[in-house]
């Protein structure tokens, strides 16, 4: 098949099979995503981050844990230490590269827990209504009433420091906004004719929620999650900075900043380099989220 006909095959208005229809929808989504150059930049950065994390042992010039006290606090561009070394003489670039794994691990876990919990609570609450709605929403309100980092701190303090607990704490504080969004969407979807129509086929509430309401809520949640990712990375870094997240010697970016804080006036790069990494990845997630918002809105997909 030549390229031209493949494109036509993908852009067809008359798909001939389920798979064809799915590919065609994906391709059209990709086309409108591609139109947003900022979002593509975000995607490229994140793909790069993924590759870096995947091949960390291969591309990092040094072992991130090996100390070299004779060579501590070496400035940028020192021989074989492009981004310098930290207070224990460890290569900052290697630590950043290995730290990307931790960042992705945190991001992935939070992205798995918080939106799913929010989606469950929000859609059940919105669809059921009545007292179920009242109870679930009051619980949500209680979680929303605390400042996020303070609540996370309290959880970590109770659960003990460590990266898994930090993730859990962040997830526990992150789900209520998703529940609110999912509930609001469910309330509008619930009254629509297509939900009435499927009720008339004898479908039960579980099927309606999972097969009919979730697919419509998911897109706005995905967008929201990508936009929140920056905040989640920062929260994880914040916990690391306070010594409640990843524990030394693990090269978590927030902990690295915390470590470099003591030398910030004389040896600025020690804290700045991980800070830049956090900044770039947060920005990438924000750009991607903006792009996804345009692609995933079902109202626009007619174009």
């Amino acid at each position: 098949m030549t390229e031209q006909t493949l494109r036509q095959w993908l852009l067809t208005e008359t798909p001939t099979s389920r798979r064809h229809a799915r590919f065609s929808a994906l391709y059209k989504g990709w086309l409108s995503f591609r139109g947003n150059s900022m979002a593509v930049i975000g995607l490229v950065i994140l793909v790069a981050l993924l590759l870096v994390a995947l091949f960390a042992p291969l591309i990092s010039p040094h072992d991130p844990f090996v100390q070299d006290l004779a060579n501590r606090l070496a400035p940028l561009g020192t021989d074989s230490h492009v981004l310098g070394t930290d207070s224990l003489g460890r290569d900052i670039l290697s630590r950043l590269i290995h730290g990307s794994r931790i960042t992705l691990y945190i991001v992935a876990l939070v992205a798995l827990i918080a939106p799913v919990a929010g989606l469950l609570v929000g859609t059940i609450s919105g669809y059921a209504g009545g007292w179920i709605d009242t109870i679930l929403m009051r619980i949500t309100d209680i979680f929303l009433a605390f400042p996020r980092l303070v609540l996370a701190l309290a959880f970590v303090a109770a659960l003990g420091a460590g990266i898994e607990n930090a993730v859990l704490a962040i997830s526990l504080t992150a789900w209520p906004p998703y529940a609110r969004i999912a509930r609001a969407e469910t309330l509008t979807i619930r009254g629509s004719d297509y939900i009435s129509a499927i009720r008339l086929q004898g479908a039960g509430p579980m099927r309606i929620i999972t097969k009919h309401i979730w697919p419509l809520c998911v897109s706005s949640l995905i967008v929201r999650v990508t936009l929140d990712m920056a905040g989640i990375i920062l929260a994880a870094a914040g916990l690391g900075f306070l010594g409640l997240g990843a524990q030394p010697p693990s090269p978590e970016w927030g902990a690295m900043i915390s470590d470099g804080r003591r030398f910030i006036l004389d040896h600025w790069w020690v804290a700045t380099m991980p800070g830049l990494a956090i900044f770039i990845v947060s920005l990438a997630f924000n750009l991607l989220g903006d792009g996804l918002r345009d692609v995933l809105d079902p109202k626009d997909s007619g174009l």
Partner: peptide
Amino acid sequence: FQDPYASLHPRHS
């Protein structure tokens, strides 16, 4: 239903 634009699920073929 009255409105065919509202009675079909937008994500279902």
